[in-house]
Simulated assay, not measured.
Amino acid sequence: MRLFITATDTNVGKTYTTKKLIELAAKQGLRPGVCKPIETGVATIPLDGKELLQTCQRFNQFYKDIEVNDIVFYSFKLPAAPYVAKGEEKIDIGLISEKIEELEKSCDILFIEGAGGLMVPIEEDYYMIDLIKESKAQALLVTPSQLGCINQTLLSLEALRNRSITHYWYVNLFKDKEEFFTITYPFYKKHFGQVPLELTSVFDNYLHRD
């Protein structure tokens, strides 16, 4: 199983969510695995990748014997979209696919964390959403709770539907948490019927999908 954690934008809570998913998977008796194919804004070591690795090491023996660069395949110093941050370097999508397949052999479920949002460019005409499609993973869209998130959420969900990517979504309540239930929740409730505020329920739906 592969689940790709993406978001409407950067700093929405992908790494936080991925760490929680690793813990939830372990509680279900699954051996979790993780990778973050591309990380930007890396001064010395990939900090998001380090957090993910340390979390996974608690539950999967295989991860105790590898380094952070084994789960972060490309890292760049500039805190920008991969296409910009990489400069003249080429990101080999085939290599990313190979490394994902290799990591998958050592776990029951592999969590793949993206960089930025869905339409963040990796190459000039290749975006994060294309990597989701190519990785043959289902997607979990993490959305924020601040003003403006309705537009971001609807656009992102539409993009996933247009690519025929099976997906789930989850509201990470951390910004404007109190205001969310006044300015955003009423529309979500009317439009979607159910609003996914509990990651445990979202993950359970994923595990028990048809």
Results as ranks from 00 to 15, higher is better:
179 E>T: 10
171 V>K: 02
99 K>I: 06
86 K>P: 09
133 K>A: 14
87 G>D: 08
85 A>Q: 07
186 P>N: 08
125 D>I: 04
170 Y>P: 04
172 N>C: 02
118 L>I: 08
79 P>S: 11
157 L>I: 06
139 A>S: 13
184 T>W: 00
176 D>F: 07
74 Y>C: 07
86 K>Q: 14
185 Y>G: 01
101 E>W: 00
86 K>F: 05
131 L>C: 08
165 I>L: 11
147 L>S: 03
123 E>C: 10
186 P>M: 09
109 I>M: 13
151 N>P: 07
117 G>H: 08
185 Y>H: 14
84 V>D: 09
104 E>V: 00
93 I>P: 07
142 V>P: 05
174 F>M: 10
124 E>H: 12
87 G>T: 05
133 K>F: 10
159 A>T: 12
143 T>C: 15
141 L>K: 03
81 A>K: 01
110 L>T: 03
186 P>Y: 05
113 E>W: 06
171 V>Q: 01
89 E>A: 15
135 S>Q: 13
97 S>R: 13
168 Y>M: 03
77 K>F: 13
139 A>V: 05
168 Y>A: 03
147 L>T: 14
186 P>K: 06
172 N>I: 00
146 Q>C: 11
109 I>G: 00
88 E>G: 02
175 K>D: 12
92 D>G: 09
184 T>D: 05
105 K>R: 15
185 Y>D: 01
76 F>I: 09
146 Q>I: 02
129 I>G: 02
92 D>W: 12
135 S>K: 03
87 G>W: 11
148 G>I: 11
120 V>I: 13
90 K>Y: 12
137 A>F: 06
158 E>S: 14
83 Y>T: 02
151 N>Y: 07
145 S>I: 01
97 S>D: 11
125 D>H: 14
146 Q>K: 14
152 Q>K: 13
144 P>C: 02
141 L>Y: 03
132 I>K: 03
123 E>F: 03
155 L>H: 08
80 A>W: 11
109 I>S: 04
87 G>M: 12
161 R>L: 11
120 V>C: 13
115 A>N: 09
114 G>M: 08
106 S>R: 06
161 R>I: 04
185 Y>C: 04
182 T>W: 06
121 P>R: 07
132 I>E: 07
111 F>E: 00
150 I>C: 02
80 A>M: 12
140 L>E: 01
136 K>A: 13
95 L>S: 13
112 I>D: 01
121 P>M: 11
165 I>S: 08
96 I>S: 02
104 E>S: 14
85 A>H: 08
181 F>I: 05
150 I>T: 01
88 E>H: 12
114 G>H: 08
77 K>H: 13
129 I>N: 03
127 Y>T: 04
176 D>E: 15
147 L>Q: 02
163 R>A: 05
73 F>Q: 03
116 G>L: 10
184 T>I: 15
144 P>F: 01
157 L>E: 12
180 F>M: 06
